[in-house]
Write a protein that binds this DNA or RNA. Sequence first.
DNA 1: TTTATTAAATCAATTCGCTTGACTTATTAG
DNA 2: CTAATAAGTCAAGCGAATTGATTTAATAAA
Lengths: 404, 404
Amino acid sequence: MDGIRSIRAKSGTNLGGASAHNRRIMIDALRVNGALSRADLARATGLTPQAVSNIIEELARDGLVRSQASVRKGRGQPATPYQLVPEGAFAIGLQIDRHVTRTVIVNLVGDVLVQMEAKLPPGGPAQGVVVILDLIRKARNALAAQAPEAEKRLVGLGVAMPGPFGINTLYDDPWMMTAWQNFPLMDRIAEGTGLEVALQNDAAAAATAERLLGAAHGLDHAICIYFGYGLGAGLILNGELYGGAHANAGEIGMMLALVPGDGPDVEPLEHYASMAALCKLLDFDPSEPELFAMVTDAILRGGPKLEQWMDSVAERLRRTVQILESIFDPQTIILCGGAPRALIDRLVEKIEPLLPSIAERSRRYPEARLQAGLADPWSAALGAAAEPIARTFDPRFSAILKTV
Amino acid sequence: MDGIRSIRAKSGTNLGGASAHNRRIMIDALRVNGALSRADLARATGLTPQAVSNIIEELARDGLVRSQASVRKGRGQPATPYQLVPEGAFAIGLQIDRHVTRTVIVNLVGDVLVQMEAKLPPGGPAQGVVVILDLIRKARNALAAQAPEAEKRLVGLGVAMPGPFGINTLYDDPWMMTAWQNFPLMDRIAEGTGLEVALQNDAAAAATAERLLGAAHGLDHAICIYFGYGLGAGLILNGELYGGAHANAGEIGMMLALVPGDGPDVEPLEHYASMAALCKLLDFDPSEPELFAMVTDAILRGGPKLEQWMDSVAERLRRTVQILESIFDPQTIILCGGAPRALIDRLVEKIEPLLPSIAERSRRYPEARLQAGLADPWSAALGAAAEPIARTFDPRFSAILKTV
DNA sequence: TTTATTAAATCAATTCGCTTGACTTATTAG
DNA sequence: CTAATAAGTCAAGCGAATTGATTTAATAAA
């Protein structure tokens, strides 16, 4: 009695897979480089001009690319550049945070068309999902008013939520949104919207946003530290977001990493370095709608308590950066956040000078070792919206393979 | 004056790329699952039985797979299982360490056929390369004596060396092999052997070995901590070795990670946790041929000095494991090494119990959070030999794409 | 002005590995 | 002995990229 011996194997592929990949790299090339002619695309991708011609024609038929006026550049027939059509696709992003939910709708090139938020009722997910579905409905109506054709071109809905997912609780609420994680939220949203739904933690979503239209645009190896209510990192490795074995990779907020002076009872990193920690310090209510303005204000005012906190956070992040550089050898590290611009910028300033690491090379990229990224309350929602776009149009190994 | 604007794009693919991928997944499936019938392979890979049949036939013609006796398993025509042919391919591995160079030759399934070492002269790479080429020549002769056909089936030569590569020196020799890294070693070896040569750091090589035939066999997400003369990690992410932007990913020995009691002047991790550190402690000469036996002996004898060192190393590694788990969310972490078995096993024992992390989940894999891997002086050389095999036969994204 | 050169882009035929659907073979259950 | 089930093959078809020749449109050189 052998039982069902499950065979582990990777998936095969065929002409269809190859073709799908080639469509994706065209779109990717146009996104990264701006408008390109068919000849440019052929040279850059290694495909024949004829193959590129066919693919571009098909993409144009599908309304994803369009030609610009032809340009003369020396001898030879002038080239006709093609660009992405912003209205070629749309996606909805949804951020679910502890006290608030936000939704944005973006188009293929990442322009934000709709942006709405709602307070989450304290009753937990059962009541929360009603608010969420209502918010999405309103956002879709607003989209329809701007672009009647857009509804047909919605490629999906991305959800960003604080992680980690599906693990034993390490410590208690309000740090973890345990009740939300045990609720069949994705099913309910998929059912309520009729869209394909995918879940990410908010750091991963922010990294997706940085890659689509931020500081990581066109980079293949970047680490995005997301400083929000909690602390996480989005890992862009080989041009793709890395999720780990259970989609919890990048949970650096859970690291028990020390700075000089810490004892064995050190708490997880995000207990020191996060908006939650700052709110506790300043005695601000995290659900306060004007929180960002209040924090910005406090930073501009300064004061020893805040400066001291920022110094200590900078010290922790400086060591975190050194650890991440040693482990990943990335092109750059980006500090972004669901946090006020002023805070992120001050922290980047204070983290410098960085500790010595393998990132210290004589011929560095144009990219600095550490830079500031997107920083506003909407960045996780924006990243959530970027996810369906990336999933549908970005070149990925898994997109080539057959679905077994 | 536009100059040469370089266009960044991913590479396209075609039928040939798809076909190459399908060959690779067949080999991978046979390696991971043992012998499989064509029907099994078709189900597991999602390809049609006819496609599998054609591919298997071709692989058999190439001498990479062979059929076994058919087996009856219930109703229906009995299945004919296919297995990898060990003599289908061979590869050479070369480890260059501070005081010694080692070479091994393995076959397609990782059996070690030849194993030789030589002392490196103190004069540096110019003299070293002569010794190295001589050693490789002897090894190939030994291989020819065992298997006359093998020479034709050599797929490449992998080199493992302590990293990091091509960065500003953080601290001085003998930790870094600066002189070696500035020498055109790969070119000289390629020229001297007529083989394709690839370079990895020794931690990456060890991880390749663990994946091919060790504790990471068949796993897609594993971190191998390599405890050798230095300290590094090999990162297996999505079933592939991750190298980072400049092939220096995994240099955890460079981490400035603290344990309770450390001050701001903490040294890189490998100054505490490495064979080099142990040799310093015990006043052993690292170039001593009997080093492993001496260390094993010392461990069996015990003594407060050694126990204290092991405790402190275990404490550092315990925290490193927690950091790696938080960052990667892997299936398992493997402690392996160019170090005596006894040392690795004692360290794994002493590292337990692990610190709380996101790896603490109720339904864990069969795999433990931390386990011991290969541990002998040959593991880096073995991994170096596994690299050409993996590069030639493992499914990888880049293997599908055209070379631009 | 004319002609040669260069480059973009297309046309038409070909290629090649996977798919499709019908068929053969070998075994067990009833 | 027959029906059911599964492995595996045969032969034709398909589809996206390739190949090689051709067209178009510009500049450089004569």
